[in-house]
Amino acid sequence: MPLEQALEELEEVVAALEEGSLTLDQSLQLFEKGIRLVRICSQRIERAEQQIEALTGELPPDLLSR
């Protein structure tokens, strides 16, 4: 799941929980989903990796060793 989508879903989950009109069951389900989304977002941010490639030709070696 892309970071942007995870972040948006997470914020929706939090808003729904804070709104507080859900049953306990629904709340717990949402909470679990929220925690999962937090994990996804954190992983995306912490293990962020750039993938650099050139469409044509060779890239200078200093760019590839980043």
Binding site: L3, Q50, E53, A54, L55, T56, G57, L59, P60
Partner: peptide, 25 residues
């Protein structure tokens, strides 16, 4: 230009943002 300082400036600023970077020389 793949050899220019501009490219290095851009890559430095993008930093650890997770994206696929396609350089079209």
């Amino acid at each position: 230009s793949p050899d220019g300082a501009a490219l290095r400036d851009v890559l430095r600023m993008i930093g650890c943002y997770p994206a696929r970077i396609l350089i079209s020389p």
